[in-house]
Amino acid sequence: MMQKMYDWVDERLNITPMWRDLADHEVPEHVNPAHHFSAFVYCFGGLTFFITVIQILSGMFLSMYYVPDIMNAYESVKYLQTEVAFGVIVRGMHHWGASLVIVMMFLHTLRVFFTGSYKKPRELNWVVGMLIFFVMLGLGFTGYLLPWDQTAYFATVVGVQIAESVPIIGPYLKYLLTGGDIFGALTLARFFAIHVFFLPAALLGLLAAHFIMIRVQGVSGPL
């Protein structure tokens, strides 16, 4: 039955080459922790992606309750955390997952650095990886404001003041982030839009480029 359904689709869309392209690539011995336990360092990239998926899913659920305006943002987060069934778990996963992504990505970057995997011909993938790193930091920075509590508000004020002191582009950067002269309704709306639409879109594009490049080039060889 399944086979017949597969053949029916395959005859029309020729999906076998696409599927084999995803599934067929050899995993060499030196990156396989089943053969060499120390190869667990090669897992950090995959774990970063795994936690990124958790972040996307938990974020989607958070957005069912979160209200991005200064009157209701704090109340909605508080309601989610104290009243909604398992709300505290969903927000907890998103909150701690944000830290965990940074940790995993940091370890992945160090693995790539110390194994010299960024060298020719993989320079471009390293650059894309660094861009992913900055996008992730941007997601952390913009997401931190959204609960609209005291720590969030004042940490963001300091962060934007730092951005403002960059020469030439600083004031424009501040205006772009805050949407005006004060930290208020527009600031929260902008941080929400950046956190939920702009940066995730950039992240997904960069991740696709990262994964396509690693598939085209293959994992770096043993040291």
């Binding site: 200064i70 704090y74 109340e75 987060v77 508080k78 955390q81 505290v88 778990i89 927000r91 907890g92 996963m93 998103h94 909150h95 701690w96 944000a98 830290s99 940074i102 930091l137 952390g140 920075f141 931190y144 609960p147 609209w148 509590d149 005291q150 720590t151 969030a152 508000y153 004042f154 940490a155 004020v157 300091v158 962060g159 004060i182 930290f183 208020g184």
Partner: peptide, 28 residues
């Protein structure tokens, strides 16, 4: 970690509170 540590939520943001000590997330 998630079950044992609730995500922190301090008081609602009060822009007039000049005595609050700002503290960014740990990775900044």
């Amino acid at each position: 970690l998630t079950v044992s540590h609730d995500p922190p939520l301090t008081a609602r943001a009060n822009p007039n509170d000049s005595s609050f000590t700002p503290y960014p997330d740990w990775y900044f």
